Simulated scan of single mutants.
Amino acid sequence: MTETEKFETIRYTADVVALTPSGNVLLIERDWPPYEGAWALPGGHVDPGETSCAAAARELSEETGVQVAADDLRRIDVWDAPERDPRGRYVTIAYLAVVPADTQIVAGDDARRARWWPVADLPPLAFDHADIISATVGSTS
């Protein structure tokens, strides 16, 4: 490494845009900083030895009780803007899960609440999750 090379810690996460055919998206109310009390997509850190797709399925289950096989998730894109998270550099891969309209949800793990929201009437969202939802909805139409 030369004196001009600099490296930063990059954290690897996965988020899930769970949509119903009627256009509702599943959000959690965050129970921890940053953005404590704000609404966000289910998601979290990729564990050692885990793929981002497996992490997405696991986090969706842990935070909302929704069970989806990793093979049923569709990769949307990567979000890696340097300032997307106030805790430092985070890179996330977002996945789409289309689930039946009557899918039951239960807040768990790091979520105060979990709720279905109409895509056309979302609350203010944490991080860049509004951009992720917008890109996902645009890719499914």
Rank of each mutant, 00 (worst) to 15 (best):
I28W: 03
P100G: 10
G37F: 12
D31Y: 00
I93M: 07
A70M: 02
A18C: 06
V78H: 12
A114G: 05
I93S: 02
A18P: 01
A57D: 11
A69D: 13
A114K: 08
D110F: 08
D80S: 13
I93K: 00
D80V: 05
P118E: 11
D128R: 14
G49E: 11
R11F: 11
V16S: 00
T103P: 02
E62T: 10
P118F: 01
Q104L: 13
D72E: 15
V17N: 04
W116R: 14
H129P: 05
V99P: 00
V99M: 10
P33S: 06
L19F: 02
Y95T: 07
A14P: 05
A107R: 01
A107Y: 04
L60W: 02
E29L: 07
D128V: 11
P100K: 12
K6P: 00
L27A: 03
D85W: 07
G88A: 09
P124S: 03
E8W: 00
V16I: 06
E50L: 02
W116T: 10
V119C: 09
A101C: 13
E59H: 13
T4G: 10
H45K: 15
A130F: 14
E29R: 15
A56E: 00
T51L: 07
D77L: 06
A114N: 06
S61R: 11
D72M: 08
K6D: 09
P118C: 01
T51M: 03
V78G: 03
E29K: 14
A40W: 07
D85Q: 08
W32N: 11
L125N: 06
D31I: 02
D110E: 15
T20P: 03
L73V: 07
A55P: 10
W79F: 15
E59G: 09
E83Q: 14
T4N: 14
A94D: 08
E8V: 14
T92E: 13
C53E: 11
